[in-house]
Design a protein around this nucleic acid. Structure first.
Lengths: 228, 228
DNA sequence: CCAAAAGTGTTATTAATACACCCATGC
DNA sequence: GCATGGGTGTATTAATAACACTTTTGG
């Protein structure tokens, strides 16, 4: 049974923006294309939707293919559907962005796809409408990170408060006051202080914390909302 | 030239959520389907993407077909792509929501499509994943309306402050304090008070205002952001 | 003259911002 | 012992929330 047999059919693409964070700041995982079309140019990682999978599944598949990570934080950004957006052929693309802990990437895979981590303020021009996608993704990340605890997906499980602060500073491109930042973060009661210290980045060492998701969910049930 | 000829192809649907507002509150324009599939059930207005149009254009076309309005406030909500979402056939749907001034609708067209305005708190069960779409659209509208002046699209050009307050109360399903609401609205300096009064809804009459978009844009350039 | 909705200010509370010094440690 | 980054508290300001009476006018 097919009610819509007279309707036009389209290729559906899935393009993925991968955010990462390290000591140098916020970064994107971009491909220097060694394949056609637009060989030699920079682009996002992409793929095509297959018949037997959902659009979300396709995005997961593409993201996992590049990063080796099966379960990651991922959100749909939206569909990009200009007629001429892809000169190769008419393709409607559904764009996703993912937040990953940069240490978890599979470096083999990343090399295989000729992908590189590029600082957010040094992103080159990208093919098609991919620059627009990145722009929107950054806006979305900023909005989202300011009202929901998604930023933690960019960090390892254990992180220090100075590290967390650098993350938010990288996302918003502003400098934050150390005392006010800590006060606010700790006041939300969703961070759990660990015994252990990170002695890598300073002599004194900074205490590790971890995000307590159960606690967060409990608070949300009672009307709490995260905000930085 | 077609680089992607081996890839699967899909029907792409466009589903549209139409918000309206009148004295009874916030409403949705829903279709009681007198056609297959799912004849007799409630659904959103939809259509299919055609080869020669962009996805945004398709949404505009569908919205205009139903409401008679060519230029309306419309935003993409996202793509819905579960394999089984439409039992009729595999269709990836891209959902939009629109905010219209309920007085501008073409009643003939609305009747033709067997569409009805349903209060937001009385929305029946909808076909496929349309209920999910509506849920997401409401969330989006709430977020959007609290940080950007999109609400004015639901009102006539001239509106009164009590009317505007009722609009926000309808969107957020809360009661607001009259004095605080006026103070905040007027403090943003984007409303222009008119000489004329609305004498319909009260004996004393309430002054009409209109949203000054130029003024708003100027303020935005200087870093202002709208917030209710 | 009265019912019904419009309009108007002040105070209290809470949240956001600004700001400077001591601490621990590896070298 | 000193350079480096980690950690802490208070005072000011701004935003939000709470709250009650007067005005206008059609019927």
């Amino acid at each position: 049974m097919n009610f819509y047999s007279n309707e036009d059919k389209f290729n559906i693409g899935v393009d993925c923006i991968v955010f990462g964070f390290d000591e140098d700041g916020l970064k994107l995982l971009l491909l220097k294309r060694n394949f056609e079309p637009a060989k030699g140019k920079w682009s996002l990682m992409g793929g095509f939707l297959n018949k037997q999978e959902s659009v979300d599944d396709a995005a997961s598949r593409v993201l996992s293919k590049l990063t080796g990570i099966d379960e990651l934080y991922m959100e749909q950004l939206g569909a990009f559907g200009d007629v001429e957006r892809d000169p190769g052929s008419r393709v409607v693309s559904i764009c996703y962005y993912a937040l990953i802990n940069i240490d978890e990437q599979d470096k083999e895979l990343v090399r295989k796809y000729n992908a590189f981590w590029i600082s957010i303020d040094q992103v080159p021009e990208l093919i098609f409408d991919h620059s627009l996608m990145v722009k929107k993704a950054l806006q979305r990340l900023r909005r989202k990170a300011s009202t929901q605890p998604v930023g933690f997906n960019l960090l390892p499980e254990k992180f220090t408060l100075p590290q967390l602060q650098r993350l938010y500073e990288a996302i918003y491109q502003v400098e934050l006051d150390k005392r006010n930042f800590r006060k606010k973060m700790l006041s939300m009661k969703v961070l759990e202080k660990l015994e252990e210290k990170d002695k890598e980045t300073s002599k004194r060492g900074a205490f590790y914390y971890k995000f307590n998701e159960d606690q967060y969910n409990k608070l949300v049930e009672n009307g709490f909302s995260f905000g930085v």
